[in-house]
Nucleic acid binder design. Structure first.
Length: 599
RNA sequence: GGCCCGGUAGCUCAGCUGGAUAGAGCACCAGCCUUCUAAGCUGGGGGUCAUUGGUUCGAAUCCAAUCCGGGUCACCA
């Protein structure tokens, strides 16, 4: 249990003993870190008790403070400042904490339990390469899955690939028309990019055809429907659904190119999946659920045969689930897929990492499943994230303002190389090590940039600012880590020394403020990791890691480790920095960010 | 128009289950490398927390209204 939690419990206990018979709600117990301008480590806010106990804050604080000091053994003293009970934690608490945890590789994690959670993320279309917006999704999904794992859950990372539909037919038609049999092998173009090129070609040709028809006197709306290339694409979709052999093999070939391309990107990004679903396998699902819903009377049928659900009780609308001809719509297959996932893995929870433009859709999905009494309904959680926008507004593929994911990665790695060479601290590194370092720094910067903001907020992507490797960045954290490793190297100390390493440590001297801040923050890591899971918010780990790195840098500037005042201080500081490096590594690793030992 | 989300320093963001004088980073200014990595550290300027009213010992945080920005309300996915 973290110290803050212990203080909360001890306070509850103290109030019960000191004021028997008075009901004090647990929520009124407020434990915070003491502001730097006051003495003490943690503070209990006294105001909430004043009214309940009809006592003055000072008297109340004295009694509570005395009780806490006496009974818990955690504190060396306390002070009451205008309604705040500021407690000073005994140095021995921090020392014991360090001795117990300094080399625990699982510090902050929860024991394994059998709660099963699926995290669906990435979920790309197969008609174009990944762009910058996908990266936020991918990093969020990967990070969230790892955070949930670290909190003891059994996690399945899933990818639901949207591999069928009109969009891929568009690329296919354009390829047939214009490619002259070109393949990724022949052109040397990455498969997903090649298919994307034909998607763009389709749209250009389509635009031209519409313009031509309008010039011939057709109104625009009709022209958009009548353009030959669009009709071809629609016909191809019908062929595909009918299982036409030629269409299917073209589809398989082109999707194959895209998958190969995606695999390269995913590997580069350092993300993976335990399960891949394809929409071509799932798009017909959901009909049986709808049939059952009709029988149960939860859904209703109109005269034209279409099936609807009435959500007006929930303040929403009527929603179509099956067309008059019996074919399904988007949400129908999602109903089926939700159930499929649930049955495949006996899920307690199913997380969908999807942009916030689908908030309404996800709300409806969950509601319908609830109405149908499907057991998968309760576990559905929409991890909704805001769009990534450019300073000029939203990225629009039609306007060519989309930032390609592969390009962005390459650019960041290039920048990392440039900066590293400028810093000139890597003599003795092999070419291979250098390449790896550039990737660690470049990708780290990119991931951190996209994860440091609260997911639900939309974010502005300013290309100039995103490539800054100073300040609130992964580079800053990596640098602190490299500094620690450098010290440990010179001390001939492994990153995680054996358990008996500091066995003879004894603490006679007081802990200095810079040391205290570090250890106090280290002690909070388990709570941060827990919150990141509970709030589905990886950015908490970014904030925390940055703070920890900042505190280390200040500490490093103020105190020497290798030339500490004495052996005791040296050992204390070694434990501190070992634990700092380990915690930074742990937190960043969950987000897929590596920390170099040298940079 | 209905519903949802947001508005905090010049810019990008923390803080939001009410608690001490609202914090970081970037940018700007002034210092710090013969001492463990200066991709760093220390200090400084910069705020009507969109507006107005309410709740209370206390409001950036909760409630109401207003203004501004975005999303969504398809037999598209």
């Amino acid at each position: 249990m973290t110290l803050a939690a212990q203080i909360r419990m001890a306070t509850e206990d103290a109030l019960k003993h000191l004021y028997p018979g008075v009901e004090i709600p647990v929520s009124s117990i407020n434990v915070n870190q003491v502001k730097p301008e006051f003495t003490g480590d943690y503070t209990v806010v006294l105001f909430p008790f004043v009214k309940l106990l009809r006592q003055k804050p000072d008297e109340l604080g004295q009694q509570l403070g005395n009780y806490l000091v006496e009974k818990t053994g955690l504190f060396s003293g306390f002070e009451i400042v205008s309604g705040f009970l500021n407690l000073t934690v005994k140095d021995s608490y921090w020392i014991n904490f360090l001795l117990n945890q300094f080399n625990n590789p699982h510090y902050g994690e929860k024991p394994k339990h059998d709660r099963r959670i699926m995290v669906e993320y990435s979920s790309p279309n197969t008609n174009k390469p990944l762009h910058f917006g996908h990266l936020r999704n991918i990093f969020l999904g990967y990070g969230m899955a790892e955070i949930l794992k670290a909190n003891g859950n059994q996690v399945v990372k899933a990818n639901l690939i949207n591999d069928r539909g009109i969009h891929i037919c568009k690329s296919m038609i354009a390829w047939q028309r214009y490619a002259d049999g070109d393949t990724p092998e022949r052109t040397g173009v990455k498969g997903d990019h090649l298919v994307g090129e034909y998607y763009v070609k389709f749209n250009n040709a389509y635009k031209e055809e519409v313009q031509k028809l309008v010039a011939e006197g057709m109104d625009e709306a009709t022209a958009e429907k009548e353009a030959p290339i669009m009709k071809e694409a629609q016909e191809m979709l019908r062929q595909w659904e009918a299982g036409d052999h030629e269409t299917r093999s073209l589809w398989e070939m082109m999707n194959g190119w895209v998958y190969k391309g995606f695999d390269v990107s995913y590997r580069k990004l350092g993300v993976d999946f335990d399960k891949v679903y394809h929409e071509s396998d799932t798009y017909l699902l959901g009909k049986t659920i709808v049939e059952q819903g009709l029988q149960k009377g939860v859904l209703y049928k109109k005269e034209d045969g279409s099936v609807w659900v009435d959500l007006t009780d929930e303040g929403l609308d009527h929603k179509l689930l099956l067309r008059g001809d019996g074919t399904s719509v988007y949400i129908t297959q999602d109903l089926g897929t939700a159930k499929l996932k649930y049955n495949d893995y006996k899920l307690d929870q199913s997380v969908y990492v999807i942009g916030d433009e689908q908030n309404y859709h996800m709300q409806v999905l969950k509601l319908i499943l609830k109405k149908l009494a499907e057991p998968c309904a309760d576990g559905i959680y929409h991890l909704s994230y805001g769009m990534v926008e450019l300073p000029t507004g939203r990225m629009k593929s039609r306007e060519g303002t989309v930032v390609d994911a592969d390009d962005m990665v390459a650019e960041m790695i290039g920048l990392a190389q440039e900066q590293t060479e400028q810093a000139g601290k890597t003599e003795g590194c092999s070419q291979e090590e250098l390449e790896k370092l550039y990737e660690t720094i470049g990708l780290g910067a990119l991931k951190f940039y996209l994860l440091r903001v609260d997911p639900k907020k939309k974010m502005i992507f300013d290309p100039k600012e995103s490539i800054d490797l100073h300040g609130f960045t992964a580079t800053f954290i990596q640098y602190a880590h490299a500094r620690i490793c450098s010290i440990l190297r010179k001390e001939n100390m492994p990153l995680l020394p054996p358990n008996n390493k500091f066995q003879t440590f004894c603490c006679k001297e007081a802990i200095f403020p810079a040391e205290k801040k570090l250890v106090l923050t280290l002690e909070q890591y388990p709570e941060v990791l827990e919150s990141a899971a509970a709030e589905y918010n990886p950015s908490l780990l970014c904030n925390y890691s940055f703070l920890l790195a900042q505190l280390f840098n200040s500490f490093y500037d103020e105190h020497s480790i290798s030339k500490a005042e004495n052996e005791e201080k040296k050992e204390l500081r070694l434990m501190l920095i070992i634990m700092t490096a380990k915690t930074l590594r742990h937190a960043m690793h969950l987000l897929g960010i590596r920390l170099p030992e040298k940079m």
